[in-house]
Simulated scan of single mutants.
Amino acid sequence: MSTHTVHAYAAMSAGAALEPYQFDAGELKSHEVEVKVEYCGLCHSDLSVIQNDWGVSSYPVIAGHEIIGTVTALGSEAKGLKLGQRVGIGWTADSCQHCEPCLDGRQVQCATGSTPTIIGHAGGFADKVRAAWQWAIPLPDDLAPESAGPLLCGGITVFTPILQHQIQAIHHVGVIGIGGLGHIAIKLLKAWGCEITAFTSNLDKTEELKAMGADHVVNSRDSAAMKQLKNSFDLLLSTVNVTLDWPMLMNTLAPNGQLHMVGLPLEPMQISAGSLIGLSRGVTGSATGSPATLAQLLKFAARKNIAPQVEIYPMSHINEAIERLHSGKARYRIVLKADF
């Protein structure tokens, strides 16, 4: 059998159950590294690609983009890494490295189109995975490998807005939706020193969310409670994929406050120009983050002892794990342990 053979779990058609699959990855490219997968997080974006919700999937799909593993091969042009080193690979596996956004540190906006780890590329639901060396991020020794994977997608997705909006400890930040992304946001913002309000439709989580670092917990469906928050937030971080009462949420923003989207509702947002103009409010969004920002996040998480709350499944039980995620009962991120 070829040494380039990859053993994986793949969806052979849209929404199909994952099944064992193997393929020959070919020769390692000069700028790539090969990583033996130890752990891989399970993200809603994996489900979207498996189900072709975004219309960009090509089958078979090998998903998985919150990867922790060790370097087993280095291309001739790979730099800064060594064999046996533990690294993480997130949403992006490659970018051109020569366009203006790449040279400016905005590789996720690569003009030629960065390569997502799970779209047109084989991801981490496998025994090994490949990526450009710049996107294999060294893992600090103080981060536990079994829980660090979700930082590489869920974590960076909520960390980037904190930097983008220059959030400081004096600011009040609201987090909408306390799931895989939202719970990491609370942990990061707590370490950042901010005042935090968690919005959830399930108040049974209140004590748990306060233990994570939330100062206040509000029922996002309680219009009376929402009205009391008028002009409160410097940043309102929306992690949900459903349409909400955007005008009501805009009214909770302080002067110069920003409603920042990292969740992806499919319907257009109905927001009046007046709600933006009067108090210089804004609506913004962001994707993941550059290799440098990913490295900053991992170092910050190690220094502040921040770890996503995870449930671990053997990768061989991947369909059971997907059902758990679909059920909405995961607390709060599922991680698969490779057991090929």
Rank of each mutant, 00 (worst) to 15 (best):
Asn231Pro: 07
Ala211Phe: 06
Asn231Met: 09
Phe233Trp: 02
Leu209Pro: 05
Ile196Phe: 00
Asp222Arg: 02
Leu244Trp: 07
Asp245Tyr: 01
Trp246Ser: 12
Met212Lys: 00
Pro247Thr: 07
Lys230Ser: 15
Asp222Gln: 09
Leu203Ala: 13
Glu207His: 07
Arg221Thr: 15
Thr243Val: 09
Asn202Glu: 04
Ala211Arg: 15
Ala214Thr: 08
Glu208Thr: 05
Val217His: 08
Leu229Pro: 03
Asn202Pro: 12
Thr239Pro: 06
Ala191Tyr: 09
Asp222Asn: 10
Leu236Val: 00
Ser238Cys: 12
Asp222Thr: 11
Thr243Met: 08
Lys227Asp: 04
Ser220Ile: 12
Asn219Arg: 01
Phe233Gln: 00
Met212Gly: 01
Leu229Thr: 03
Ile196Gln: 00
Trp192Cys: 01
Leu203Asp: 05
Val217Pro: 06
Asp222Ile: 09
Lys205Ser: 10
Lys230Thr: 14
Trp246Asn: 00
His216Glu: 11
Ala224Glu: 11
Arg221Ser: 13
Thr200Gln: 08
Cys194Asn: 10
Lys210Thr: 06
Val218Trp: 01
Lys210His: 11
Asp234Arg: 02
Ser232His: 14
Ile196Cys: 06
Asp234Phe: 02
Asp234Met: 04
Ser238Gln: 06
Gly213Thr: 03
Val240Gly: 07
Met226His: 03
Asp204Trp: 05
Leu209Ile: 06
His216Arg: 13
